[in-house]
Simulated assay, not measured.
Amino acid sequence: MSEVGRLARYLLIPRVAAPVLTLVALRADPPAVALLLGALSGLNLLALRFWTRLPHGRLHLLLDQVLALGVLGVVGSGTPMVLYLMASGVLAGLTYRARPVLVAGILTSLTYGGFLMLRAGYVPGEIDLHTTITLPALLLGAGPAGVAVRRLLVRQERTATQLWKLRRTHAVREERLRVARDLHDSLTKDLHGVWLLSRTLRAALERGDQDSVREAAGVIGETAQGLAGQSRMVIRGLRESGPAVGGLVEALHERAAGVSAGHQLAVEIQAHEVDLDDASRNVLLMVASEALHNVVKHARARTVTLTLAARADAVVLEIEDDGVGFAITPGFGPGHYGLLGMRERAARSGGEFAIRSAPGDGTRVRLTLPVRRSPVPARGEAFLHRARVSRA
């Protein structure tokens, strides 16, 4: 049921109460009027119970108003039945179109004024400012007020529907971007690593270097096993959503070792342990992995330095290499999906991403993330990691 239908049902409650209160005021005298009021209250109880099944047309509006005015003429304008007519006007405004509601309101006000002047009913109303001016104005305005409320509720429902559609479209777009980032940051770069390792394996086979062959084959096997696990995570829509295992520095060591395996690259890590929430930890590790893969894939660097520093309200990750560098284009240009992904991850976490590079001058990537929890005390001196593997 819509909000208009719910409000219409609520307006049936005073229509049930008004005949009962009038019955109490008349003290069941005469019995015929008491029977009429009881029947009217019972009809509204049935309407309250079966509101959605009732037909709503102009004829029903006319019959309802005629019945209510007839009862008012019998019991008098000084009874609570006036509240019944007001509730009926608002209910009519919620249910019917504006023109018949306005006509019904005018007729109701005129009829009420006639009953008042004729002193009709068992309890005639007092002729004063309230009964001759205020009540007729309220009876006349009840219908238009119901129409205005109905239009407002309909507009609100329409706006809510449009907002829901926009949110659904935005959610689909965000999901597509998430899947694209996951595929790029996990499967794509590791597949490229497998390709590079296959070249190393082929070169080692041509040289007859069995030790290098075994090492490269082992790394390829481990990478393939990791790819299988990452593909399952992408399919399930997960992205390292499980509880963090081990410290952040340990995870950075593992990422650096996995990226530099099979490549002649020295990776130096200088970092103090920092306590981050799972989302910030995941963003930091993803950006670190992507930056290191870019170094291996494009930079032709010999050394890369990874620094993790904690501030009072933020944690800063810097990755700097001594490679060939490149010219940064506005918006990173087409094809730089890794850089776009790193910037999007930082923005979604409320952080900042910056990159500095120039041809022949290396590259420095900087990620700043807000810290929601205070950094834990450092575990001794800064951790240092170096990994160097011969590359064919």
Score class of each variant (00 low, 15 high):
E3K: 11
G5W: 09
R6S: 07
L7V: 06
L7Q: 00
A8N: 00
Y10C: 10
V16G: 13
A17G: 06
V20S: 09
T22D: 04
A25P: 01
V33I: 14
A34Q: 02
L35Y: 05
G38K: 05
G38W: 07
S41C: 05
G42V: 14
L45Q: 08
T52F: 09
R53Q: 12
L59R: 12
D64N: 13
L67D: 05
L69R: 01
G70F: 00
G73A: 14
V74E: 02
V74H: 02
V75C: 05
G78T: 07
M81S: 02
M81E: 04
V82R: 04
G89F: 04
L91G: 04
L94F: 06
T95E: 04
A98D: 10
L110N: 05
T111Y: 01
G114E: 08
L116H: 05
R119D: 04
A120P: 00
G121A: 04
Y122V: 01
E126R: 13
L129H: 04
T131L: 03
T132I: 03
L140F: 15
G143Y: 13
R151P: 00
L152W: 11
L153S: 10
E157R: 12
E157H: 11
R158S: 14
T159M: 13
T159W: 14
Q162V: 07
Q162H: 07
W164A: 13
K165C: 03
R168A: 13
R168F: 09
A171E: 11
R173G: 00
R173L: 10
E174P: 01
R176G: 01
D182N: 13
D182C: 11
L187W: 08
L187E: 09
W195S: 12
L196W: 06
S198T: 15
L205F: 08
D209G: 11
D209N: 15
S212M: 12
V219M: 09
I220Y: 03
G221V: 10
E222K: 09
E222A: 14
A224H: 05
A224G: 08
R236N: 08
G247E: 01
L248P: 10
L252E: 11
A256C: 15
V267I: 14
I269W: 03
A279Y: 06
L284N: 05
H293V: 02
H293P: 04
N294Y: 03
K297T: 06
R300E: 13
T303L: 12
T303W: 10
V304L: 03
T305H: 10
A312S: 11
D313W: 00
A314S: 12
V316W: 00
L317V: 09
I319E: 04
G323V: 06
I328T: 13
T329F: 06
T329K: 12
F332H: 15
G335S: 01
R343W: 10
R345K: 07
A346F: 01
A347L: 13
S349Y: 01
E352P: 01
E352H: 12
A354L: 00
D361C: 11
D361A: 15
G362W: 05
R364H: 08
V365K: 02
V365W: 15
L367E: 12
L369S: 07
P370F: 02
S374I: 03
V376C: 12
R379K: 06
F383I: 12
F383A: 15
L384I: 11
R388L: 15
